[in-house]
């Protein structure tokens, strides 16, 4: 059942991100962006990455998207300009198709493609197996989503699953403040630069 939800959420994320790009009204596209982030957060929570999922909602939806909404309401864009640029998108459609298909081709030549890779297909086959087992009156085989993907390749899933047994914030905190303390410092320098830059760019000269 979780697999099904995860699939639905992933599909929804893709579609709403596409709609966010193509929709003509900026407010609606912002709402689609919010929808994308919420669905992505749900996806992450379903596959077991709770903390990151929740922080997606808190940071992206709570702060950034709302900020976008405010900015869009403030600056009052003319819709006709956007419509004109929207026409230009379709001009390059053949090029985009060619590049996209080439890229997918390269990806598929490198990543070996088999049916086990696609969760939607494996869901069907799995439900078939479940139906078999119903007839045979054996226990329902429940497979975790992650383990399907991981086991298709090789078994390194044990350590991953063990990590999720801890509180995730705890694990993150441990590694961030001991092993990766320098990352924290570099990140703080980047944030400092970002703050300084906004001040420099937006301040009036007088």
């Amino acid at each position: 059942m979780t697999t099904f939800f995860v699939n639905i959420l992933a599909l929804g994320t893709l579609f709403s991100s596409v709609f966010a790009i193509t929709s003509k009204n900026p407010v609606i596209s912002i709402i689609f962006v919010i929808a994308t982030f919420v669905q992505a957060a749900g996806y992450l929570i379903f596959i077991g990455v709770n903390f990151i999922g929740i922080s997606y909602i808190v940071i992206y939806v709570g702060a950034i998207a709302v900020l976008f909404l405010f900015v869009i309401m403030m600056i009052n864009i003319k819709l006709t300009d956007i419509l004109e640029t929207g026409n230009q998108y379709t001009k390059n459609l053949p090029l985009a198709l060619a590049i996209g298909s080439l890229f997918t081709y390269v990806i598929f030549t490198i990543i070996p493609f088999n049916l086990n890779n696609v969760p939607a297909l494996s869901l069907i086959s799995e439900s078939l197996i479940n139906l078999n087992s119903l007839i045979l009156n054996s226990n329902l085989i429940s497979k975790d989503f992650i383990s399907i993907i991981v086991n298709a390749y090789y078994n390194l899933s044990l350590s991953d699953i063990n990590i999720t047994d801890f509180t995730q914030i705890e694990t993150l905190g441990y590694s961030l403040y001991t092993y990766g303390a320098i990352f924290l410092i570099i990140l703080s320098v980047i944030l400092l630069l970002a703050m300084l830059a906004t001040i420099i760019i937006s301040r009036s000269n007088k």
Binding site: G180, I182, F183, I186, L187, V189, I190, L193
Partner: peptide, 9 residues
């Protein structure tokens, strides 16, 4: 990760 962070900086 440190490559990415420093290229961003």
């Amino acid at each position: 990760i440190s490559i990415y962070l420093s290229i961003e900086l």
